[in-house]
Design a protein around this nucleic acid. Structure first.
Lengths: 170, 170
DNA sequence: AACTAGATGATAAGCTTTATCATTAGATGC
DNA sequence: GCATCTAATGATAAAGCTTATCATCTAGTT
C-alpha cells in the first residue's frame, strides 16, 4: 500500500470493477512525483496535465480523483479555499495535518501520532470505524496580524473593506 | 464574549465601522437559540428565517455570516458536504471538534483540551498566531461498513455503482 | 477476435457563493 | 429631532467549481 505500481493499482481497481486506463496511470504518476507535502486541486492537476502535453479532459480528472479517493489511493482535503485538494494517501501511521494561513492561503504540514491516536480513540469511543482524521489549524502570518479576525475568507466588499484595515479605535 | 447581547454586538460591530441591523440581530438570535452542537449552512439559515416569516434575502444571509465570522462571533466549519456551516463561536478554552459520518452526513461533537493545546503549540512552534483549530474525524456508521472506502463523497455514477455494492471478491 | 461494461471527452446543467446597483436606513453630529 | 454620510439591504446577474448526460471508444474477459 505504500506507493502503488501500475500493476498494483490495476489490481486494486479491477477488484472493484474499475479499470486501469492510461489517464489514470498518468494522474497517479503525477501525484507520486509531486514534492512531499504538496496537494492539488482538480484544476491544478488538469493544468499540469495540459502543460505536459497530455490530452485529458477535466471530466476525467474529476472522475479519476473520485475513484482514487474512493479506493483510498488519494486523500481528500478540505482546506477552506472553496475547493477540494487531493494528495497521496499514505498508510495510517503517518497521516499528516495542516496549518493554513488564512491570509496567503499557504499550508504547512506536520505529523502527530498523538492526534492520530486521539482520533482513533474518539471514533472507537462512539463505536465507529475511523477512515481519516485531519487537524486543520488556522493561523495568520505575522505580517497580517494587526487585526484579530476569524478565518472566514473575506472577498468582495468585506475584503475591500478589510484591506483598508480600519485600525482598532482603541 | 461568552454570548452577545444586542448591545454588545452593536458595540462590536460599530467598533469596526459595521452596523447593527434588525436582520443581523435576528440571525444572531437564531444561532443563540440553536440547540447546542448544531450548525447551519447559509441555505438552512435562510429557510429558518423564511419559515419564521422573516423577510431576509439570501444576500443578507451570506453577508451577515461573513461579517459575523470575520468578527469572531461565528465559527466557520468545513465539513466536506460541499458547503460551509456556521455555529456560535465560543471562547477559546472550549472549542469543539467534529466526527463526521461520510454516509449519513451526521455529525457528532466532542471537546478535547489536548487537541486545543496541540494546535496552539504547533502554531506557536511555527511562529504563528492561532485563530482556530478543528479536528475533523471521518467515519462510517456501522451499518455501512461493508466497504472500506475513503471519505470522498461519491455521487452520480460513482454513487450508483457503490450503491450496488459489489461485494469484495474475497 | 468478439463482446460487454466501464471510461472518455465535450458539453450542458447544477449548486453554492459572490458581485452589482439602485434603494433604504443605521450612526453620528449639530 | 433632523440632516448627512455611508453602510446595508434586496433582487438579480454572474462567477466558480462540481456533477450529469450521452455518444463514442476501449479495457478486461471469454
Amino acid at each position: 500500500m505504500a506507493s502503488h505500481t501500475p500493476a498494483s493499482l490495476k489490481a486494486l481497481l479491477n477488484q472493484r470493477g474499475f479499470r486501469l486506463t492510461p489517464q489514470r496511470q498518468t494522474i497517479l504518476h503525477i501525484f507520486q512525483t509531486l514534492p512531499q507535502g504538496n496537494h492539488l486541486s482538480a484544476e491544478e492537476l488538469h493544468n499540469i496535465l495540459v502543460a505536459q502535453g497530455e490530452r485529458i479532459s477535466l471530466s476525467t480528472v474529476y472522475r479519476t480523483l473520485h475513484v482514487m479517493a474512493f479506493m483510498g489511493v488519494l486523500r481528500e482535503l478540505e482546506l477552506a479555499e472553496g475547493h477540494k485538494h487531493y494528495e497521496l494517501n499514505s498508510p495510517d501511521p503517518h497521516q499528516h495535518h495542516h496549518l493554513v494561513c488564512v491570509q496567503c492561503n499557504r499550508t504547512l504540514e506536520f505529523e502527530s501520532d498523538l492526534i492520530d491516536r486521539i482520533g482513533t480513540k474518539q471514533a472507537e469511543a462512539e463505536g465507529y470505524h475511523l477512515l481519516d482524521c485531519q487537524l486543520t489549524i488556522y493561523i495568520v502570518c505575522p505580517d497580517a496580524m494587526q487585526q484579530g479576525w476569524s478565518h472566514s475568507l473575506p472577498r468582495d466588499w468585506v475584503c475591500n473593506r478589510m484591506m483598508q484595515m480600519r485600525p482598532d479605535p482603541e
